[in-house]
Design a protein around this nucleic acid. Structure first.
Lengths: 199, 199
DNA sequence: CAGGGAGGTTAGCGGTCGTTAACCTGAAGG
DNA sequence: CCTTCAGGTTAACGACCGCTAACCTCCCTG
């Protein structure tokens, strides 16, 4: 875990606020003026940093898909050999939960606004997402060898649905504590996979 | 299960197509002309059937929330006394899965476009949703008495996330068979609850 | 068979939105 | 000290969108 100490750049500020607004009201429901206002500049000032509104969404979605995939690959490599399949699956789950809890707006956007992208960007994001899913499928099948591949893929998508439910889990602060929530989600994900694995 | 034999009214056609389009491209991403075109009339013709675009979304969301709640209440009543808590939970899960598989666009809209409603409609929908959740929470807690109420509520929301993942499960026809998918989702939901119940 | 309502049509209005153009300003660098 | 440029500003344009107005055309009914 790398912790940043330097101040966020203007670009990063914009992306963060845009993500929040897009998640709250949908891509088409947010005007550029609002995004600008959220970072203290006004509308057209954004065009000094981004080519357009589409470009912000594209950077957000490509970024999140890439981060998820990169993180998963890293976890897989770290555990290579030294840990059993179950520990690898636990690590993947943990990583996804961290993301879902720390970047709720992005998790929301991720499966909601994909179709608003230009063709080339959408293909890229889909490819990254697909790789991420396939990586999970392999790990899940190594833990539950009885699972057929299509079934495993459905199970993975369903567990993503479970883990990505965090935005519905109550107002940001009112959670029963981040650790408790993370542990609950983790247990439930494992329980769901286990139930899928006993066909 | 009541099966309709009569032809759908124009209103129903419109609602169905609007639901599909809203789910695909978001409420703000769809124009009234498109909705009209989808049912063979053009734009303003819709205003013979609905007060406005907002009214279509409102009717869809109120309708689905009401149907879910009504169905759950009915299942609860049918099982009253004659079945154990586990059977009641199974019945709730089955009902929700039927809905998620048969009305994918609506399931998508349900947790996505709520904030686009007028205040009064949004409050109504939220109230129906809350009742539905609380009903589940009671049943889950009767099966797993060790579960604290906030935990049970989180678990219910998460299982909704799992069950509502059906739109991501592949192109409509390409599923491994509706029955197989329904059974997988059911098993996973039960597994998730069981894991949540063993704190 | 008159007439009236249900359910369409097209034209167009008013507002909003993304984007561009033109201009300004303060700080850094030779 | 002059220049340059990053990063803003406001004005405005063209497109689009929700909705209304005005009109038309069946079909049912007294």
């Amino acid at each position: 875990m790398v912790t940043r100490t330097d101040a966020p750049t203007r670009r990063e500020q914009i992306l963060k606020e845009a993500a929040r607004l897009f998640a709250e009201r949908g891509f088409h429901g947010v005007g550029v003026d609002e995004i600008g206002a959220a970072v203290g500049i006004s509308g057209p000032g954004l065009y000094r940093h981004f080519a357009g509104k589409d470009a912000m969404l594209a950077e957000l979605l490509v970024g999140i898909s890439g981060q998820l995939l990169t993180g998963a690959k890293r976890r897989l490599q770290e555990a290579d050999g030294v840990a059993g399949p179950e520990a690898v699956l636990d690590s993947l789950i943990e990583g996804h939960i961290d993301f879902a809890l720390d970047d709720r707006p992005l998790i929301t956007l991720h499966d909601r606004e994909l179709d608003r992208l230009r063709d080339t960007d959408r293909k890229l994001v889909r490819q990254l997402q697909r790789q991420y899913v396939e990586l999970w499928v392999e790990v899940v099948r190594s833990v539950y060898p009885a699972l057929a591949e299509p079934t495993a893929r459905s199970a993975v998508h369903s567990v993503f649905g479970l883990l990505n439910s965090t935005p519905h889990l109550a107002r940001p602060g009112a959670l029963p504590g981040r650790t408790v929530t993370a542990e609950l989600l983790h247990r439930m994900a494992r329980g769901a996979f286990a139930a899928a694995g006993t066909e």
